[in-house]
Design a protein around this nucleic acid. Structure first.
Lengths: 72, 72
DNA sequence: CCCACATGTAAAGTTTACTTGACTTATTGT
DNA sequence: ACAATAAGTCAAGTAAACTTTACATGTGGG
C-alpha cells in the first residue's frame, strides 16, 4: 500500500492555532480523530472536501497546508 | 462525510485552455475520461491529489477551480 | 453519406478515504 | 497514587472515488 503523494502541515497549523487538539480539529471539520491522525501521519490524503474544511478552520488557502510531494 | 458539496469550473478552464478535450485533460492528469466527465457533471468530487494535478494543468490555484457550494 | 471525434451514460469491479470501537503509552494535574 | 487528557495503533467495516468496458448521441469534415 503506497503512501499518498500528498504532504501536509496540519500538525504545525494545529499548534500555531491555539494548540488545538486532534479531537478539536476533528470536531470542527466533522470527521473522527483517527482521520486526523491518519492525515497528519500521511497514511492517506484527505478528500478535497475535507481539505477545504481544514483550510477554512485555519483561515489559509489549501495550498498553504497541503502539497504534492516533490513540489514543496 | 456529507454529500458532495464541491463545485468546479473545470469545463470553463478546459475551453479557455485551447479548447482542450476531456480526453486530453484526462491524459494529462492521469485518469480516465469518465472521471473527468463525472467531475464536470458534479457526480462526485475529485480526490485532493487529482484536484492538485488539474490545477497544475491550468496553472491556477485549486480554489480558483474548485469551491465549496454556498461559498462561491 | 460516411467516418472520426467529442461527449454522455451506465453497470460492475477495485482501491482508498473514513468510521467504529477498542486498546496502549505518555503527560499533567489533584 | 489516581484520574483525565492527548496522541498512536490496529482491525474490520462502509462509502465514495476511480477504472474498465460498452453503448448512444450529436457534430463537422471529406
Amino acid at each position: 500500500m503506497a503512501k499518498s503523494l500528498i504532504g501536509n502541515h496540519v500538525r504545525k497549523f494545529r499548534f500555531h492555532h491555539d494548540e488545538m487538539t486532534q479531537q478539536q480539529l476533528a470536531d470542527q471539520v466533522g470527521v473522527t480523530r483517527q482521520t486526523i491522525v491518519a492525515i497528519e501521519k500521511g497514511n492517506y490524503s484527505p478528500s478535497l472536501e475535507l481539505a477545504f474544511r481544514i483550510a477554512r478552520v485555519f483561515g489559509a488557502p489549501i495550498e498553504d497546508i497541503f502539497f504534492l510531494e516533490g513540489e514543496q
